[in-house]
Structure formats: structure tokens, C-alpha cells
Design a binder for these strands. Structure first.
Lengths: 140, 140
DNA sequence: CCGCATCCTAGGCGATACTG
DNA sequence: CAGTATCGCCTAGGATGCGG
């Protein structure tokens, strides 16, 4: 049971690219995006079309059932998504200028991955809930 | 651009199941698992077989390049994974008793999802890095 | 309307020391 | 060896107020 891993572990490390800890390596960070409070939801909403900042904020509030994202955090999340190339920020030449956000092709691709994962989880939700119930009961 | 969403948003909400905020609904929490510092890595390692607590801790340390998980957090993460039915905890009747952890079938399934996602990200890593570089350069 | 700066809190995580 | 308890840090994220 000791030698077995030596081969496997090598590519595991490569897979997660966890050499240092805060490498600029996308793997951990993108996983982090999907796991955080808002990014995935933003992805889901932008998947339906382009949104302006305030409009997006209102929509997120609806979806999240009255619990709104602060504008500070929305700006932060959009910046991160934009920096990674998942979201494009467009500013009109109007006066006053209007800012709108939309998914890039890469962002649409990520959006698809996220949906796939969410669907998988939702399909397993009953199993998971059962497991939790059993665990909490056994534990007394 | 306003009416468009009304239909879509309904199932978006259902999809993420974000009714309250801290529902016992698995979707957000499992996404959170994948995004946190250790859970995915634990999944990856347990994907190669069963491990005892200390052994697992050492292995994780290797993979994460000398940055070890604290035993407190390892216990926490294993508990969460166990509670959700992804990991099974087995105790031998020996003296002294030995504890070992392994993936359940559901856990192996999640492991496969995680790998798939990681592979997707790694395949896009160059694009993402390019986007970042462009963003950081433009931003001055 | 968009974004920034400031302040504050809750929770994740690490370190250490202690029990069965 | 497995697990718990205490502590302290550090970051995500909320609230509010200002400037463009």
C-alpha cells in the first residue's frame, strides 16, 4: 500500500499544479471561483445575455432571494472574471457612457462546465441528503 | 432585454436552489467543497486507494509541496466529506484500532467530475494566462 | 450609474498542546 | 495514531459614503 502511489502521485501533483501554494496557476483559482458565493451565479445569469451593472445586481438579488450582493463585491467578482477572460466589459461611447458585461466564448464554455456540474450535483442531491441524515442520526 | 429573462431566471433559481441562503441544499455546498483549499486534493488522493489519517496527511503534504494541512482541518474536511456520503470511514476491531478512509461509489463519481473539470481548466490554462497578461498590461 | 475607499465581521485555516 | 480544544491570523464579503 506504500509503493502504489509513487507513480500516481506524480501526475496528481501535475494535475492540480499545486507546486507552490499560490502559484498563478489557473486550476486552483478557477475551482475557487466556482466555489465562491457569487461567481457561479453571475456566470449563470450572464449566460442568458448581456447585463448592465445595476441590472445584474438586481437580478442576482432576485435569484438569491432578497439577499443582495454588495456592489463592491460585484465589481470585484466581475473584475476577476474579466481578468481571466471569462467576461467582457463593454463601454458605449454615449454620454453618459453605459457599461455592460457579457460572457466571452471562453466564459460560455466555463458556463457550460458549471451547469454540467450543477446538474450532476442536483441529480445526486437525494443521495447526499440521505447520507447527511444518516450521519447526523448515528452521531447522536 | 427585460422580458427575456423572466422565463430563464425561474429555472436558474431552481438550478442553483438558492432559495434562502444557507439552505441544506447540496448544490452550493458541494461547489464550495471543490473550491476550498483541500477537499478536492483529498478526493484526488483517495481516488488512488484507502488511506489512514496520518498517511493521508503526509501524502497531502508532499503533493502540496511541503505545505501541510493541519490535522484539525484534515479531520474537519474528512468529516464533511463523510457526512455527505463521499468518503467512508472504517475502523478495525484491532487493538489498537486503526482508522482508514476511502471513497464511496458516490465519492468516486464526484472524483471523476472533479478530474474532468480540472482537465478542462488545465487545457484552457494558456488562454487564461494570456487573458490575465493582457488585462494586467492594459490596466497600467 | 459605475466604481472606489474605508471600516467591520464571520469563517476558513494554521499552530500548538492535550486526551484516549 | 486519531481526535479535540484554544488561540490567533487573514481573507471574503457586507455597509456606507464619496467622486466621476
Amino acid at each position: 500500500m506504500q509503493q502504489r502511489e509513487l507513480a500516481d502521485l506524480a501526475d496528481l501533483a501535475a494535475e492540480m499544479a499545486l507546486h507552490g501554494k499560490d502559484r498563478d496557476d489557473p486550476a486552483r483559482e478557477v475551482m475557487g471561483l466556482l466555489g465562491d458565493r457569487w461567481s457561479t451565479l453571475i456566470l449563470l445569469v450572464l449566460g442568458t445575455g448581456a447585463f448592465r451593472h445595476a441590472e445584474l445586481r438586481r437580478t442576482l438579488a432576485q435569484l438569491s432571494s432578497e439577499q443582495a450582493i454588495s456592489q463592491r463585491v460585484l465589481t470585484l467578482k466581475l473584475r476577476t472574471l474579466e481578468r481571466d477572460g471569462f467576461v467582457a466589459r463593454a463601454v458605449t461611447a454615449d454620454v453618459p457612457p453605459k457599461v455592460s458585461y457579457a460572457l466571452t466564448p471562453l466564459g460560455q464554455d466555463l458556463h457550460a462546465q458549471a451547469r454540467h456540474l450543477i446538474d450532476w450535483i442536483n441529480a445526486r442531491a437525494p443521495q447526499i441528503r440521505d447520507a447527511r441524515e444518516r450521519f447526523d442520526r448515528a452521531d447522536d
